[in-house]
Amino acid sequence: MLEQTNRTSTSTALRRCKPLQFKDVVLEIDGVALIRQINCTLDSSGKTIVLGPNGAGKSLFLRLLAGLMEPTSGAITGGLEEQDGLRKLAQDTGAPCMSLVFQNPVMLRRTAFENIAFVLRHHQVPKHEISSKVDKALAIARLETRAHVPARRLSGGEQQRLALARTLMINPYALLLDEPSASLDPLSTAIVEDMIERADAMGTKIVLVTHDIKQAKRMADDILFIHEGRVLAHKSKRAFFKDPGSKQAQAYLDGRVPQE
């Protein structure tokens, strides 16, 4: 995944990608607006950190971006838009699509090795390459010794690393992460962050939802602050932490309840 040979293919994909744009995006569920007219543009590379209190709509924002949910109105454009196009690109370049890593990693009922091999087989990686690619992915996730353990037996941190390694195997042009290090110990958090940094170095667009302010400071290129389904700020890291731009964002950073 992180080989030089694949760097070329990822770049090929990036050249074809456009910045991701939310245009007047509204999402209503059961008549309740959970995302309220979001307008923003995410560059096709770099690390965007999404911050916001619980229930602000961060996970929905990621799901909309990943195409797992359809907006009630408005449009999300850019990136790779056609389903067939995604598949075609997967075969042409090996850099197929956006991938979402969930807060609670979804593990197939197979070994750690087979979890990664499954994704490779799905992306038509030649049979003779699968074993070596899986070994490399496991090494990057520091799971070499856990290769033949049923994935659902791994610890939370190991499962998250496996989920991330599995996702990175397909060289997505955008990697969307929903609190990937929530409830992980410092070591697992460091490994997860290292894996994300490697993907970023490869040119993969990173969109990361987190509640960890320190993590945001460590990793962000730009920060998107969501509150009650609205984007209240989208600034560079330096600008955001200097001036969050709203009392809600300031209260969030200070860890206090915003005054109405």
């Binding site: 195409g67 797992l68 598949r87 197929p96 699509c97 991938s99 969930f102 197939l108 994704v119 799905h122």
Partner: peptide, 26 residues
């Protein structure tokens, strides 16, 4: 449990079906 994971991988209906049958083997 697997729906969003399958969709994020853009599995076809047939691939979903075969994967589910294997995952549900027990």
């Amino acid at each position: 449990e697997y729906d969003e994971f399958f969709r994020s991988l853009q599995l076809s209906g047939r691939e979903k079906l075969m994967t589910l049958l294997w995952e549900g083997r027990f």
